[in-house]
Design a protein around this nucleic acid. Structure first.
Lengths: 211, 211
DNA sequence: AATTCCGGAGAACGGTTGTTAACTGGATGA
DNA sequence: TCATCCAGTTAACAACCGTTCTCCGGAATT
C-alpha cells in the first residue's frame, strides 16, 4: 500500500495544495464566482497556465475545496453524535467540537458558509451532497438511541437535518465571534451559551415529541 | 405628503429601478462580488457611466437590494407571529406566508441567501442588521404570549433567533423546490410538511421549556 | 424667455481576464 | 544511456473591466 510517491507526483501534489491554500486565502474577502485563475497562480508564484495542469476551472477547484473542508469531518460527526452520556453532556461535547473546528480551520468554515448558496452550481451541489451525507449519518446514529423508540423514519431524518443545520449555523456564529475586532474570547463564550440553549430547547422538544 | 414627483426625478427613479431589476436578474447565476458595473448597464441598455448617477459601486447597489428585499417584510412578520390561534394554526400560517413570498419574489430570496455570507462586507452587514431587527420584533411579539410567562429575556431572544433562522432556511428550501426541474409542485408540498414538523418540534420544546 | 441644473452619452485610459500554442528541462522507464 | 513523458514557462490573443473627462439636451428654476 505504501509505494512512495515519485518525486514527480509529489511536486505536483505540492503545487496543487499550494493552489488550494492560496485560493482559500483569497476567498476570505470574495466569493468563488469572482475568483480569477490568474489571481490564484499569482499568489502561489506560478505561471497562469500551470493552473490547467491541476484544475479545469476555478469551479473545479471549488469542488476540491469542498471535499477538503467537509470530507474528513464525517467520522468526527459520527462519534460525537453517538458518544454515551446524557443529553446535556452530548450537547456540550458537540458545541466544543464545533468551536474547536472553527478555531482550527476558519477559512474552510467561511468557504462552506459562503458557497453553500453561492453563485457556482457545481460547488453548491457538492456542499449539498456532503450535508445530505451528514444528515443520513446523524439519522442512523440517533436511531440507535433508546429515546428514538417509536419514531418514524421521516421524523428521524427531519431531526437529523435540524441538527445539521444547527451545526452549520453554530459554526457561522463562532466564525463571526472569532473575527470580532475587540474581544473574540468573550464573544465565543457568549455564542457557546446561546447555541447550547438552542440545542437544549430542541432536545426538550425531542423528548416530548411522541406526546 | 403627496407632491407628484417631477418628471425628472420620476425618470431617474425609473432607471434606478431598472438597474436594480437587471442586477437582481444577473445575480441569479453569480454572486455580487463578481457582478460588473458594465454588465448591469448593458442589461438595462444604458451607458456604463450612467451607473454612477445612482450608485457609488455594485456593493452600494447590493445594500439597496437588501433594503428592497427585506425592508417591506417587517409588518408581515409582525402580524404573522402575533395572529391569534393555537400553535398549530400559527405554524401553518407562517409556512404559507413564506411559501407565498418565495413564489412571488424568488430572486430576492436567492439574493439574500447568497449574500448573507457572501463576499461583500457592507451587504453582509446590511442583511445582518435586518435579521437582527426581525429577531427583536419576533421577540416582543412572543413575549406577549401567555406561554411566555416566566421566560427570561435571553431565552426569548434565543427562541426568536431560532425562529428567524428557521424562516430563512425554510425560504431556501422552498426556493430549491421551486427550481426543481421535474415536479416543483410536489417538492413544494414535501418541503411544507418537513418544515411544518420542524416548527412543531421546536414548539413542543417551547411548551416544556420551564420544566 | 433666459438661465441653471443634471441624467445620460460618448470616447478614451491603463489594466486585468481566460485561453491558445509552442517550448524547456528534469524525472521516469526501457 | 537514451528516448519519453509531463509539470511548468513564455508569449501572445481578443475581450472585458472600472474610472475619468467632456459634452449634450431637456427639465427645472427664475
Amino acid at each position: 500500500m505504501s509505494h512512495t510517491l515519485g518525486i514527480r507526483q509529489a511536486q505536483k501534489q505540492k503545487t496543487r495544495q499550494a493552489l488550494l491554500d492560496a485560493a482559500l486565502g483569497l476567498l476570505a474577502e470574495q466569493s468563488l464566482s469572482s475568483l480569477g485563475l490568474r489571481e490564484v497562480t499569482r499568489a502561489v508564484g506560478v505561471a497562469p497556465t500551470a493552473f490547467y495542469r491541476h484544475f479545469r476551472s476555478t469551479a473545479d477547484l471549488g469542488v476540491a475545496l469542498v471535499e477538503e473542508a467537509l470530507g474528513s469531518l464525517h467520522p468526527m460527526v459520527r462519534t460525537t453524535v453517538s458518544t454515551a452520556g446524557d443529553s446535556e453532556e452530548r450537547i456540550v461535547r458537540a458545541v466544543e467540537l464545533i468551536a474547536a473546528y472553527v478555531a482550527a480551520h476558519p477559512a474552510h468554515v467561511r468557504f462552506i458558509a459562503r458557497e453553500r448558496h453561492g453563485g457556482v452550481q457545481p460547488v453548491r451541489e457538492a456542499i449539498r451532497d456532503q450535508l445530505a451525507r451528514f444528515a443520513e449519518e446523524v439519522k442512523v446514529e440517533i436511531a440507535k438511541d433508546p429515546e428514538a423508540a417509536g419514531w418514524s423514519d421521516d421524523d428521524l431524518l427531519m431531526l437529523a437535518n435540524l441538527y445539521v443545520d444547527q451545526m452549520l449555523i453554530t459554526a457561522c456564529l463562532f466564525l463571526e465571534a472569532l473575527e470580532s475586532p475587540d474581544a473574540p474570547k468573550e464573544e465565543m463564550e457568549q455564542v457557546t451559551q446561546v447555541v447550547t440553549r438552542r440545542l437544549r430547547l430542541i432536545n426538550v422538544g425531542r423528548g416530548h415529541w411522541l406526546d
